[in-house]
Structure formats: C-alpha cells, structure tokens
Write a protein that binds this DNA or RNA. Structure first.
Ligand SMILES: [Mn+2]
Ligand SMILES: [Mn+2]
Ligand SMILES: [Zn+2]
Ligand SMILES: [Zn+2]
Lengths: 139, 139
DNA sequence: TACTAAATAGAAAATATTTCTATTTAAGAG
DNA sequence: CTCTTAAATAGAAATATTTTCTATTTAGTA
C-alpha cells in the first residue's frame, strides 16, 4: 500500500479516503473491476458516494500509474492494479475463470517491433499485450 | 471483396446489402470504425437503417472472421477489417495519425507464453496484441 | 415462384459515461 | 493548530452507448 501512496503523492494527487479505499479494494480483489463494481463497494464504506467520482478517480489512478486499463470486449471499462507501472515494460495475464490479474515482468516486443518497421516501414511507438488463460489455482 | 463474401457464405451468414455495404466501407476506409460511424455511412445509402442492426452485423462479421475488434480505451467499440482471419495468428498495427489499420503477419507469442507458463504456472489460452505508431505515409 | 430461416427497422428499455455546479476537504503555509 | 486554496466531491442531469423486443421483410434454396 505504501508503494501506491508514494505514487499518488509523487503525481501531486491528494491522498483521499476514496482513493485509499479504491486501492485497498484492488489489492484485496486481485482482479479487474468495472467502475460499477468499485462503486458497489464504496457505497458500503461511505454513506455518500457518487459514481462520477468513481470514474474520475479510476482515471486519475491510471494517470499516475497505479491502475491499468484492462481490455474486455464487453462495452464496459475495466481496471486493474499495476504495481510495476508504466516505466518498466511489462504485461498482464488474466485468468478467465477467477479474473485474477497477474503481472508478467517480461516483454519481447523488440522482435515484432523490428519486423513491423522492416515490413511496413512504419514507426512503432506503443503496444498493448494481454494474455488470457487459467491461473495456477484454476487450471 | 470476393474473399470476404466467401467467408460470409462459408459461415452460413446471408449476403445482405447491409453487410456488403459494411464490408465495402471498411475496405475503403482502411481504418477502425465505431458502430456510430458505420451507421452514419449506412444511413446515406439506405433510407431506413437502424443502429441495432449495425451492432448485430458488426458482431456477426467478427464471428465469421471478417472483422476484428480493435482496442481503443474510449468506451466505444471499434472494429476493423481482418483479411487474414482467426485461423492464422497475426496482429494489427494502427497509425495514431490516420487510424489506418495494417495487418502484421507475424507472432512471436510462444516465447512469452513459455515465460508465463514457467513463471506463473498458468495455462495460457489466448492473447491480444496491438501496436500503435505512425504508418509509412504519416511518419 | 414459393418457402423458410435469417435479417431487418424502429421503438423502447437498459446501461454506461460525462458534464455541470455548489459544497466539502486535503495539504501546505503561517 | 488555524487559515487558505486548489483539488476532490456529490448529486442531478444530460448524453452516449448498447441491448432487447416484436412485427415485417428478405436472401437463399428448392
Ligand atoms: Mn502492471
Ligand atoms: Mn487481421
Ligand atoms: Zn484463476
Ligand atoms: Zn498513418
């Protein structure tokens, strides 16, 4: 948790009770969550709590590298904790059964990047990679 | 175009004027499009044309491998033409300036897959990979 | 040409996200 | 600790997106 609080402060964002609760929720769940799911949880902890604030906070936490967006083609936004952060190139493995998100501290992007620059004559700037399967417990 | 029509028929889907127009639109634009954008175009060609039908058709075309979903974290669905198709593992390069989508007929997934199975003891089943940058014209 | 399953429109409902404004609060200065 | 201020907040409302439903039409086939 300390690690995330440092990230928050380092980005000039305030450490509010909502943000602490959101981070704690992601730490506890170990899975990807939609704004709606986060709101369901926050409503229990805070008597007054608006959904727009949840959307704003999730995006702020992405900005400062605490959360990452997860792609699930269901027309909802999904977020997950990212302890490694933007700086270090890595990816996320998602269990299709329990939705657990694990960080994969590995990236062999250079090979495909080289292929694209050679074959398409394009300039590669960014990439997203996401892997699904079954985690060690669910398989 | 023939190639796509074959795919449609092969999947037991009917070749309707809407579907032909949608495929033609993607061929012409060479970019990723949202249901809304596709609808804007279809409304010009067909006096009566509903948005629900556009959603249904886009999903049908994904099912049969003519389109692929593109990830753009803007809470809209994005689709793009896929001439290579599911069977052959490949990826998509998207120009951030002109939105052109190019197919990358290359995938070195095995290396990272092996890493994940060894390190997370997980079973890898699927992956999505997407690359952004500038195409040869835009760079 | 006639038949049938699939595709369609359009209305409506459901869902998801953003915008706006007044109020509250965290964090730093004194 | 108290004051100040910019940032965060709720809540209402607007907007945007997606899905569901039903009656009608149509593509493909015989
Ligand atoms: Mn991460
Ligand atoms: Mn493709
Ligand atoms: Zn699992
Ligand atoms: Zn381009």
């Amino acid at each position: 948790m300390e690690h995330y609080i440092d990230k928050l402060k380092h980005s000039g964002l305030k450490l509010t009770p909502r943000r602490q609760a959101i981070i704690a929720l992601f730490i506890e769940r170990k899975s990807h969550l939609t704004p709606e799911k986060v709101w369901e949880y926050l409503k229990k902890k805070f008597s007054r709590c608006g959904l727009p604030g949840v959307y704003r906070n999730l995006e702020s936490l992405v900005e400062c590298g605490i959360l990452t967006r997860i792609q699930q083609f269901d027309s909802k936004k999904h977020y997950s904790l990212c302890s490694i952060g933007y700086g270090h190139d890595h990816h996320h493995f998602i269990c299709r059964k329990c939705n657990k998100v694990e960080e994969v501290d590995f990236c062999n992007f250079k090979v495909i990047s080289r292929f694209i620059e050679d074959n398409l004559h394009a300039k590669v700037e960014a990439h997203q990679f996401q892997i699904q399967g079954l985690c060690s417990k669910c398989k």
